[in-house]
Amino acid sequence: MDTSPAVDSAPTVRAAILGTGNIARFHAEALSALPDQVEVVAVADVNEEARTTFANHLAVPRSYGDLATLLDEVSPDLVHVCTPPGLHRDQVLACLQAGSSALVEKPPTLSTAELEELAAAEGTRGPWVATVFQHRFGSGALRAREMLASGALGRPLVAVCHTTWFREQSYFDVPWRGRWDTEGGGPTMGHGIHQMDLLLALLGDWVRVSATARRQARAIDTEDVSLAHVDFANGAVASIVNSLLSPREESYLRIDCERATLELTHLYGYGDDNWRITPAPGHEEDVWAAWRSGPQGVNSGHSAQVAHVLRCLRANEAPPVTSTEALRTMRLVAGVYASAFLERPISPADLGADSPFHTRMNGDGPRW
């Protein structure tokens, strides 16, 4: 069920795209599919050739070499921030201060401190900052969330959340990759964060994490693998693995509840066919009825989330994923690192302003 506000008569959103690399293509495709709701009015990139090619392909009227000029001359309603992570804090803050909402790629910032700063710069009626966590918006996730919230699955008990991907050493030849100061972390921060965010969207608040992080095989500053045990406020426990060392790549989420097991197996995005539900004995009829009656037919991806963002902005409401929701996920990422490097369990209360992991995901310095 789509709970987005009805905005048929609302004004069109004027959007700009900052950064014209590969990920910007997904944003452009999502925006192009909704011409009745949004107009792309400008793009910006420090690379003149890249931004010109991108603007010409989209038939965008204005192209800029810097964000400040774009914000001053165009004043967009929404800026899609598709730049490397180390640039996000300053760029999103500039958007908010200029009165433009921002939809920022993951990770939204390099630390929870930076994200809290952005949240403080939001207005009560906008502008807002939203983070791209598109796995929340496929119909399978919406259906799972409804069933968990309604009690149709019973209590969630045990979960598995694996992002086991593979990246050669050459992947890290890009100067900002594999560095704490420009990427914020390794697969825990930049890759598994999507699946971890979906886990949190389904299971809610976490209360304790115990973790290990290693630099097993890649010549980088950050970890290339992490493993964590997470306790949730609702009593569920989860095992999380984030790896860039796994030749057979897979993204896998499993939640065992009292009445059924939910599973999602995919790589970079999913459709309804990637989900599986297995009712417990005696609960087959009710579980299948609830599963079949839920939302259908929407794949995860930028298009699904962008559609929600636009509808909310046109209704003058905070777009998903809000800074509050993104902060819960970022604090879990920080908790994984803090636990791994301090070699003890971590709670959200341990990650306040007095913690070195509040301002840097690797705390007060390199840990290897």
Rank of each mutant, 00 (worst) to 15 (best):
R155M: 09
S303K: 03
T359F: 01
D36F: 07
T222V: 14
F166L: 10
F232P: 01
A213Y: 02
L267R: 11
E258L: 12
D221A: 10
A217Y: 03
Q296M: 06
R311I: 08
V43D: 00
L262K: 01
Y64N: 03
T265S: 10
T109W: 00
S239M: 06
V241Y: 03
L244H: 15
N362D: 15
V92E: 03
G282L: 13
F26G: 15
H308V: 14
A16F: 04
P11L: 11
L110E: 10
R214S: 07
V81N: 00
A33M: 06
S246Q: 14
A121C: 12
Q296I: 08
G21I: 12
L262W: 02
I346S: 00
A94V: 14
S32F: 05
Q97N: 15
A42T: 11
G363D: 13
E317Q: 13
V74K: 02
S111E: 10
R331V: 11
P345V: 12
G21V: 09
S246L: 13
H302M: 09
R311V: 14
T83C: 06
F341W: 09
P107H: 06
R215T: 08
A33F: 06
S111Q: 07
H162M: 09
G186T: 04
S4D: 12
T324S: 15
W291R: 00
T109G: 04
F137D: 00
G140L: 02
F54H: 02
L93D: 04
T163M: 08
V43Q: 03
A50I: 08
P11Q: 10
S139V: 05
G294F: 08
I240D: 02
G19A: 08
A289L: 04
M189P: 04
V230K: 02
D72Q: 09
R51C: 12
D8I: 13
R167M: 15
P11R: 11
D224R: 03
T53M: 07
S4Y: 05
L153W: 00
G151A: 03
L332W: 03
L313T: 09
P107W: 02
A334Q: 07
L148T: 00
G154R: 02
E317R: 09
T359G: 12
D364G: 15
D181K: 06
C257T: 00
V333C: 13
P108W: 01
E73R: 11
R177V: 14
S300K: 02
A217G: 05
R62V: 11
V241K: 05
N362I: 13
